[in-house]
Design a protein around this nucleic acid. Structure first.
Length: 211
DNA sequence: GACCAGGCACATC
DNA sequence: GATGTGCATGGT
């Protein structure tokens, strides 16, 4: 069996399903994908809670907010001035593109949609791919800091691997499956948080030591 | 107090 | 194309 599938099965057996993305609606997932950039998810939840209380947890509401109001609401998620601009740009894109009726995007090829997202200010590869996979159910493998750290430390990625080469490895090693990509990424984050931290280095990884 | 957290744009070489 | 820097809150 392929190594990456074997690793997935071990992770799943050890941790169980992770129930990602932790968001109630498509729009909440998109908003969270921007707010979580280089930021602890707990802080993102506070920001989302603020938006909810202000009845502004929707892309249409966000484009209508004053910049200062938006940055104040999302303040707990950090980088709030920058993220206010990014979140507004993403909201503006989806409002213009489909008026937040996401079913209208279903006929657009994934690569094309990815290109559009990457052209939006504040949307890089991980944010684009998180939106594609978790909000729009496209089979794109999301790479992040955890993926690279786990992969390099345990030898299935090299130091020279970057975002795109890591994504290519996962996508050619696994069947093209939204649910599999969803769960796998979430499990890698879980492993990265609990065991595969920057320091101290984990001496007894419960997953990889037994492969 | 240091380190970390589900990145990105921009400047500079 | 590679590398460095600013952005900021809140938990450990």
């Amino acid at each position: 069996m392929k190594l990456l599938l074997k690793i997935y099965r071990r992770l799943f057996k050890h941790f169980g399903p992770q129930h990602w993305w932790p968001g109630e609606t498509v729009e909440e997932i998109i908003i969270g994908a921007v707010l979580t950039q280089n930021t602890n998810w707990g802080n993102v939840e506070r920001a989302i809670e603020n938006l909810k209380r202000a009845d502004a947890l929707s892309l249409r509401k966000i484009v209508a907010l004053e910049p200062e109001t938006l940055s104040t609401l999302i303040r707990p998620s950090g980088y709030y001035n920058i993220k206010a601009k990014r979140l507004w740009a993403v909201a503006d894109y989806f409002v213009r593109r489909c008026d937040t009726d996401f079913s209208l995007l279903e006929t657009i090829p994934t690569d094309e949609l990815r290109g559009e997202l990457l052209s939006v200010h504040g949307v890089g590869r991980e944010t684009a791919d998180s939106i594609l996979l978790y909000a729009l159910n496209r089979p794109v493998f999301v790479v992040d800091a955890y993926t690279l750290r786990v992969g390099r430390r345990h030898g299935f990625l090299s130091e020279k691997d970057d975002y795109e080469s890591a994504r290519a490895l996962f996508e050619r090693s696994l069947k093209r499956d939204v649910q599999l990509y969803n769960e796998y990424h979430a499990l890698l984050v879980r492993l990265g948080k609990e065991y595969c931290r920057p320091r101290p280095r984990c001496a007894t990884c419960p997953i990889f030591n037994r492969i």
